[in-house]
Amino acid sequence: MDALLTSAVAGLTAGGTYALLGVCAVFTYRLVSVVNFTGAAIGTAGTFALIALTEAGYPTWPSVLAGILVGTFVGVAIGTIMTRWFAESSASTKAAVTVALLVGLIAVGLRLTGGQHPHVMPELFPGSAFRLAGVEVTIASVLTIGLAVLFTVLSDLFLNRTRVGLHLRALSDRPMAAELLGVKVQLLSLLVWGLTGAFTTFALMIIAPQRSPNFMTLSLLVVPALAAALVGLFRSFWLTLAGGILLGVIEGMASTVDSISQYRSAIPFLVVLAVLLWSQREARWDDAR
């Protein structure tokens, strides 16, 4: 029992990261109606900027800042492609574009970072925050979950309590119409891309030491992130948050059971399958066609 609790708590850092990435995915979907497959890859780019700088001997914290800037920049760059050429495209075309961009990003990323070549990722927040029922809870996990909760609260407030948020919600499918209402859609979209880029970068920096820091592995964290977003049906931030944390905890627990620990990256797949089958109990037609 104790071992199970320990491993569940050990999964919290990952859970917090999945939750944050998931909430960012929902945020992007609700504001610019893009299901973003490049989410984690954007953060990975920033993380590797940090690794490159620290490996070159620069001090840690300025490098973190520079890394976040790089992540923000990559996010904005992808956002520019999406808003310039695909603003009026269907949601499924937009998703297909981000898949294509993911292929390109990973290829460029692997090239620049030397493929499977091992890198040293500085642990930004070592040590434990407090003990819970005799189990150490790490600062990293408190931080990722805290960040995820913060982003959830902010997104919820922005979308439900501000005028611009309301406008954008009403019109996310029709950027042209929002533009006519005087909302600066282009600028806001880029802001969304930049903001999610910055947050995911920071989250990935925290989780990177736990994973093999290789450009592809980190970019593919988008899978649990989208699984979490599906738990929230790409609508609810709070359900997404819960889904992400739960995914991390289940993964953590699975890692202690020898017979299934090797298969734990199949967990997001099972969650996705279950959520989709559950959510489509009632028949519905594709939107308005």
Partner: peptide
């Protein structure tokens, strides 16, 4: 899972299946 909902869900299911199959 993609029967009643459109393409994007299939993208997520298939991508997660590909990861699972990899491992």
């Amino acid at each position: 899972p993609a029967l009643r909902l459109r393409g994007i869900n299939l993208a997520i299911v298939t991508l997660s299946f590909a990861t699972a199959f990899d491992t």
